[in-house]
Design a protein around this nucleic acid. Structure first.
Length: 485
RNA sequence: GCCCCCAUCGUCUAGUGGCCCAGGACGCCGCCCUUUCAAGGCGGUAACGGGGAUUCGAACUCCCCUGGGGGCACCA
């Protein structure tokens, strides 16, 4: 253990795309660890790959983290602002012989590596430029060959480190080939920048995905060669996997965090769910506030095996959070989402009513607003789900009579809240109310499952409700004609 | 192919030698409630990958196998 030394952790994403759930989970665990131990959470942007890094992503990553409430204490530090440091480090390694200039092109390296793999030998760089003389180097440079810098890994021995979640991890150096630390355009590679920054920024605990486990030996060796402090602990988190059990990433569908926001998930619910993917509090609770998570979180309870991202459970949790929301807060979310879709047709009073009657069974904000679409759509836009309608018609006995009775019930111009309760006229026909409901839900709201009917009729108003019921009645009239097939 | 990591219900997990013929949650199934239903209540289904070893005793320790995943870039 590192004793009483204050905890300093960092989240260090590459700005090559929007943050996806795996990255957020890593950020979250760092944040939880920092907050639990009263430490410092640093945000560092690893943008040394100029070709793939984009300024807009640097902004986007921060927006996403703010949306999730993952506040950082220092940064964002950009590695592109610190290039001279990496160059100086590489220079030192070169002078001390810990690194060397390599004149092989990436294509050549790959070809030889592939050949080695085919021949059953370990892949990787074959060390061709390891022992070039000054004359050799000058000759290659004169040929106009690109020059990169490679770190010379040990030929023998074993690299070990004690991972906070996995325990001792080791590898034989003979299986690790020399790797590039400076590209031929003089830009630093991940290993170098990472080693330099973690040491210089005084990071005490490096919490990241297991996909980086193998790189740890190289970064640590670099750090050691640089003469930096080796007082740092690593913790490798189990990966998040998609439906095919593969690492969650760009190829596994929509896992960008903005998509969750757009689909109506609450940041607190997403954070809560992500916290549970690879960790569980000792008492087994699953719905936890941030304070509770911070109080309970620690690395010794992080699990070891990859976790499958289960939308069903996220849905359940999101529903729990929606139900726990103050009505006014939910109203704001509904108003915002509905306004984005229907503009000024949406008023605060209606939004409030939608929130009130829909809160109990909502799964997502977007889903709730979807249910309220029938209120904001014009008569032209409104459509009934064809399948729901067909099913409802098929399952409702004497459907035309039911509609006629309900229409007659709602027809009187004196319009009270009680009148929207349409059970009496159906009951008067001797038909089971619950059996007739799907038909009415579909006629009024467009689909079978929706907001409570009576409140919906009241919100829609007498004229529009009657118009929809009459439209349904007309449709029934033609649908009732004998079919030829 | 080589290296590394992992292995409890469909899924997320609890479990650190006896309290486990394995507990919780989501899902699923059934019942109840009920103005449809995606809510709520009650109940149910369902797992320690296989084989050795250690031990009085193994889900928990060790070994082998099998399976899964990750890495093997002038990406991070």
């Amino acid at each position: 253990m590192t004793g009483a030394k204050p905890v300093r952790v960092r989240f260090a994403p590459a700005p090559t795309g929007s943050l996806h759930v795996g990255g957020v989970r890593t950020a979250l665990y760092n944040w939880l660890y920092a907050r639990h131990h009263g430490g410092t959470f640093v945000l560092r942007i690893e943008d040394t790959d100029a070709a793939r890094s984009r300024g807009e992503w640097i902004v986007g990553i921060q927006e996403t983290m703010r949306w999730l409430g993952l506040d950082w204490d220092e940064g964002p530090f950009l590695q592109s602002d610190r290039l001279d440091q990496y160059a100086a480090a590489a220079g030192r390694l070169l002078i001390e012989g810990r690194a060397y200039e390599c004149y092989c092109t990436p294509e050549e390296v790959k070809a030889r590596s592939d050949a080695a793999m085919k021949a059953g030998r370990p892949p990787g760089y074959d060390g061709r430029c390891r022992d070039l003389t000054a004359a050799d180097r000058a000759a290659r440079a004169a040929e106009g060959r690109p020059r990169s810098i490679r770190f010379r890994t040990p030929d023998t021995g074993i690299s070990r480190f004690d991972d906070l979640v996995r325990g001792e991890v080791s590898v034989e150096w003979s299986t690790v080939s020399d790797f590039v630390i400076v590209r031929s355009d003089d830009s630093p590679v991940f290993f170098l920048a990472n080693a330099v920054d973690d040491a210089e920024m005084g990071i005490t605990h490096i919490i990241r995905g297991e996909d980086l486990l193998d790189t740890t030996h190289r970064v640590l060796a670099l750090r050691d060669a640089l003469g930096e402090s080796m007082d740092v602990r690593y913790a490798h988190l189990p990966l998040l996997v998609g439906a095919d059990r593969g690492k969650l990433g760009k190829r596994h569908g929509s896992v960008a965090v903005e998509d969750f926001r757009d689909r109506g998930y609450l940041p607190d619910a997403l954070v809560n769910y992500l916290a549970l993917l690879g960790w569980a509090p000792a008492d087994g609770r699953e719905v936890l506030t941030r304070d509770e998570m911070v109080a309970e979180f620690d690395l010794d309870r992080v699990t070891h095996s990859a976790a499958f991202f289960d939308y069903k459970k996220l849905d359940w949790l999101n529903g729990e959070y929606i139900r726990a929301m103050p009505l006014d807060e939910l109203t704001v979310d509904v108003l915002t989402e509905a306004t984005a879709r229907w503009g000024d047709r949406v008023d605060a009073t209606t939004a409030h009513e939608v929130a009130r009657i829909g809160q109990e069974r909502a799964v997502t904000i977007t889903g709730l607003v979807d249910q309220a679409a029938f209120l904001f759509e014009t008569d032209d836009e409104f459509t009934m789900d064809p399948q729901d309608w067909d099913n409802a018609v098929a399952k409702t006995e004497r459907a035309p009579e039911v509609l006629d009775a309900v229409i007659a019930h709602l027809a009187p111009s004196e319009w009270t809240a009680e009148r929207t309760d349409v059970r009496a006229p159906i009951d008067a026909l001797g038909i089971k109310v619950s059996k007739a409901m799907p038909l009415l839900y579909t006629a009024i709201e467009g689909h079978r499952a929706g907001l409570p009917l009576f409140d919906s009729i009241a919100l829609l108003g007498r004229e529009r409700s009657l118009a929809r019921l009459e439209a349904a009645r007309r449709r029934l009239g033609s649908a009732a004609e004998p079919t030829t097939s």
